[in-house]
Design a protein around this nucleic acid. Structure first.
Length: 269
DNA sequence: ATGTCAGACAACGTCTGA
């Protein structure tokens, strides 16, 4: 069974590349993030023609997540238990953003996740990010048992200094702070393992390269797209890799700033 | 030099978020 995760940075802008990638990589399940479309605008037909069902949780301009599957799609859960809302300074109301969707595919419990960015340490969005990751831990702790389970997606946190190209460039930056890494550590301590993929090129399995400053050409990347598996999931892992080829320029259109992460599994029958 | 990209708005440029 092949499961993957990919922050596509707009499913509308990425559709030709997404369809190409589905045909080439043939994942059984694909978790998508940053769809940037409404549920109504989701390309169910084009994806369905390739044999995939889709469960979506998206609304408009920002965020948006989905799970594509050709291995069944049951028990769909949209949002986290007690998920926080982002309340900006001066705002009267918060808004529930669409950042988490869970489903069960052929006996594997899968979550597609897009953690808040945080914007800057000390920003209200940073506090929201930590609260959101705590809500994720509570949700998954309640679900975690003997059934294979994995959290896949863009966590917007680099687990260690080795997961960024140069930690010296990240002073006063989000994604590398102690509280963010503690939130990931809390997820691991609740029984999940960070399944570190292999890089197809270079030493570090980066999953994100900024569009600016020739970051991809210089391999100035970050590993922020993660797969966290419980024991029943992790024991079945045969291989995991980052498909950095999907970050390259292509005739099918411009790339996302993230590459897909793929995991191959063999579950005992 | 936040040097690129995407979407929304009401426009054909400017803003926001990443």
């Amino acid at each position: 069974m092949r499961i993957a995760t990919w922050n596509v940075n707009s499913i509308t802008a990425r559709l030709p590349r997404l369809l190409d990638w589905l045909g080439a990589a043939e994942p059984d399940v694909l978790c998508l993030q940053e769809l940037k479309c409404s549920d109504a605008a989701f390309p169910y037909d084009a994806i369905g023609e390739l044999g995939y069902g889709a469960a979506t949780y998206c609304a408009g301009r920002w965020n948006g997540v989905a799970i594509l599957s050709r291995a069944g799609l049951g028990d769909v859960t949209r949002g986290l238990a007690d998920e926080p809302e982002f309340v900006d300074e001066g705002a009267l109301f918060g808004a529930r953003e669409r950042r988490a969707i869970g489903a069960t595919c052929n006996g594997v419990r899968v979550w597609s996740l897009y953690a808040p960015n945080g914007r800057a340490p000390g920003h209200p969005h940073f506090r929201y990010k930590l609260e959101w990751l705590a809500a994720l831990q509570h949700t998954v702790t309640a679900e975690n048992g003997d059934q294979p389970l994995a959290l896949l997606g863009d966590f917007n946190v680099a687990p260690t200094d080795d997961d960024v190209y140069d930690i010296a460039d990240f002073a006063d930056s989000t994604h590398v702070t102690e509280p963010e890494r503690q939130a990931l550590a809390a997820l691991r301590s609740s029984g999940l393992t960070d399944i570190v993929p292999r890089a197809l090129k270079g030493d570090r399995p980066y999953t994100y390269w900024d569009y600016r400053q020739l970051a991809f050409a210089k391999d100035n990347g970050m590993r922020i797209d993660l797969i966290l598996g419980n024991p029943a999931f992790t024991e079945a892992v045969q291989d995991a890799y980052v498909d950095r080829n999907a970050r390259k320029d292509s005739p099918a259109g411009p790339p996302s700033d993230h590459a897909p992460v793929v995991v191959d599994l063999a579950f005992p029958s």
